[in-house]
Nucleic acid binder design. Structure first.
Lengths: 185, 185, 185, 185
DNA sequence: CATGAATGAGGCTTCATTCAT
DNA sequence: AATGAATGAAGCCTCATTCAT
């Protein structure tokens, strides 16, 4: 489903890949949507866990570069198929899929908060009074830009230099934050 | 197709919306993929043309803000359904076809070139010797960030301030460019 | 139609081969069946004419060998696609195709008469009183055997020695005739 | 399929005759061609088996007459629809498939071998040294003639005396064989 | 006489799902 | 917990045919 989209992935294809007959899949998951839900839940749990681990890990580098480096590196080593599926589902508006949209929103919010924390920590020492404002103000844009980098990597992997995108993203976010600092000083 | 994805959009649904019988659609487009190709080409041509026109038009604002303003405004007034389709197709990896991927690549290249031109014009007066380098170096990132803004708008329209994203994007790109200028001076 | 059968030959295929649009074909022949009728009529006329010519031609060899030689040679040099179509149509019992069955019957009758004449001429000198009986008695079997040779040639051209089949057929028919003569003498 | 030809026989027609829904047929046979293959194989196996049984059965008449008698009788009592299908398929040259042609060839080879065996047994006592040569030399022609008889019966049942054709065929084959014996003695 | 466009009916096949075992 | 068999609905597409130009 992560490779072809929900509609284009037939139960029979899943059977061929898993070796199980369709009836077994239905015994386990109840329906095609049930299977999707299970896959999504497992994918989300795994991905978020790995993300949290790497964030919690003791880290020498500054928070924002650390976050970006981890995120962008994982795109190459352990591509989160789950993310692809999530975006696909959100874009495939089956116009009645409240649950999926809610999941997308909450996961994006987690991502945004990761940027928020990274930004706050980055400026908590140098500008303790502005750190909160900076974090709140630019986290959404940072997330959006990061998603753009991910998307570019998906759309045209051969012509996308994901490393440079990451460096540009880091510089851009910090530049915006510094500009904010200047404007308030 | 732009709303539900390629696979999930049946010919019969298209017939109901268009009022034409399926056989007429097949006479015109040959196949479901043919229809997709035609839709993509027309959508891309129209959107890019309108974008170009608004940039070429006698304009008070500088090129990059003009490009961003028009692009991001059109997301609200005349949402380019074809863009969503483009992303969906690229993520739906049923591409034994290869033609679709090629279309995606060429359309993205057009978008990148729009940013390249805007950047070059922006710096052609102040730094004629660096304008080309700037345009080449940052156009890809600018495109990627812009796609991220679009994606954010698609994934969670209610919590996405597209106007602010645009302003941040403009600032970010210019900041990177100015940094490049400083490093070369 | 002679290659694929009536049902398997679409109007569109005929259009591609002829370069004409379907509507032109309908202007000329009225319907798919009309086209079939025209093709059959022309094919029958041509094939029968060529057969008649070769029979009428002054001929040194005895009548039966001459008939067989001409018929079997034409299978290789000028394969009567028309015959294929005729047999196909007769076997494809569209269960309401009186005209086709009638055509088959009349053409087979012509073939049988060719054998009848050849046999009569063969024995008209040596056994003038029995020639008619021989001709009448064995012409049907001769035709059936000959059709079998044709069919074998169609079913498995590579493993079918059409020349030998012809020689065997000639011998077989003459052997039956001679046996008949013996039994009456 | 045996009545109308492969292309003219729709899956829906088969459904009506069998009472099964189309999807069940596809579960069993995979495709229309798969169904064809199964039908052909079963038809051929049954018919040839019954033929072989009646030949192997303790039999008063000599082998060749037994073969012919049983074969030609079965044309009337238990008409082998699969034979008509076989011929139709061979004449319908849609054979990019190649598998069908191979089936045709192997089934004809079985038939030829039946004649070969019958001929060998017929002459194994009287001319043990020539029986093999005779069997090899005339089996193909015997098969071809027999097919012609079958075809004649199909094309024009009313005017075809299948019994007489069988007697003539038997005499013809034996006459050729005896001629061969004479020439070698 | 030619042609581009159109169309309802039906083509073969796959879909997601169920059920008895 | 597994599986072979079954099925109505729907999938994409081609059919033979018509008609205005």
């Amino acid at each position: 489903m992560g490779e072809r989209g929900y509609a284009a992935t037939g139960i029979s294809a899943i059977c061929e890949h898993s070796g199980l007959p369709a009836s077994s899949i239905y015994w386990h998951f109840g329906s095609k949507e049930g299977l999707l839900g299970a896959v999504m839940e497992r994918g989300a749990r795994q991905w978020l866990k790995s993300l949290q681990q790497s964030i919690d890990a003791p880290n020498d580098s500054p928070p924002l570069p650390a976050l970006l480096q981890h995120g962008f590196t994982s795109l190459k080593t352990d591509p989160p198929e789950f993310l692809r599926l999530l975006i696909l589902l959100a874009l495939e508006r089956s116009h009645d899929d409240h649950a999926t949209l809610e999941a997308v929103r909450s996961i994006r919010e987690m991502g945004r908060r990761a940027f928020e924390n990274a930004l706050r920590q980055t400026f908590s020492n140098s500008h303790p009074d502005l750190a909160d404002d900076i974090a709140r103000k630019y986290s959404s844009s940072a997330l959006a830009f990061a998603e753009g980098c991910y998307l570019a990597h998906q759309l045209d992997p051969d012509n996308t230099d994901i490393g440079e995108l990451g460096r540009h993203l880091e510089f851009a976010v910090l530049a915006m934050a510094h500009d904010f600092v200047s404007s308030r000083t």
